[in-house]
């Protein structure tokens, strides 16, 4: 996954803040934002994750003209592959996420993101069988080539769906 052009826009920040239940006016109102310490609208701390919107190959977004694995007439739009990724339903689950902010994003930023694979490891769990973890490190750079956010994500594929309590 790589993103060449992630346009940080005020309306996207507004919608993102709404979706996480954050009413802080710094995410909605440019005039109010001028009175705050950053002096501008900034993005909420987990906003960088929405770079998925700008990844042409992101596989958890239905693409025009391509089959989608969610339900329609049938419970899934494609034949289930017996790839052993049980419980993930496509791509596994998110186990960890870490962000380091070199500066906060604001509207007008044009970011690019590069992803490097990290470690992989396995663990046995009572609730989901064998777990296979894999790490990836994403570096977000701005229009000047400056590193603005370093993100580290860990995904997990489970042998079977996770037992819930």
């Amino acid at each position: 996954m790589a993103v060449e052009k992630f346009l940080v826009e005020a309306s996207h920040i507004m919608m993102f803040a709404r979706s996480v239940g954050d009413a802080n006016q710094i995410y909605y109102d440019a005039d109010y934002a001028k009175t705050t310490e950053p002096g501008t609208i900034i993005a909420p701390p987990t906003f960088a994750q929405s770079s998925a919107q700008f990844d042409p190959d992101y596989f958890l977004r239905p693409k025009i003209g391509e089959p989608w694995f969610g339900s329609g007439k049938e419970p899934t739009g494609i034949k289930r592959e017996s790839s052993g990724g049980g419980g993930g339903g496509g791509g596994g689950l998110h186990a960890e996420q870490h962000f380091e902010y070199h500066r906060h994003l604001h509207p007008g930023d044009v970011l690019s993101a590069t992803v490097k694979p990290g470690k992989t490891w396995e663990k046995e769990s009572k609730r989901a069988g064998k777990l296979v973890f894999s790490e990836s490190i994403t570096e977000y750079r701005d229009q000047h080539g400056e590193l603005v956010i370093t993100a580290r994500g860990v995904g997990v594929r489970t042998e079977r769906p996770v037992d819930s309590k």
């Binding site: 996207h12 919608m15 993102f16 709404r18 979706s19 994750q49 929405s50 998925a52 919107q53 992101y58 958890l60 977004r61 239905p62 694995f69 969610g70 339900s71 419970p75 899934t76 289930r80 049980g86 419980g87 993930g88 339903g89 496509g90 791509g91 079977r160 769906p161 996770v162 819930s164």
Partner: peptide
């Protein structure tokens, strides 16, 4: 919608129950 993560496990009850095996 805001994040762009449309994994059906989060929004598609039929897929999640019948295909992925979650409650």
């Amino acid at each position: 919608g805001s994040s762009g993560d449309y994994n059906p496990l989060h929004t598609d009850e039929i897929f999640t129950v019948k295909v992925a095996g979650y409650p």
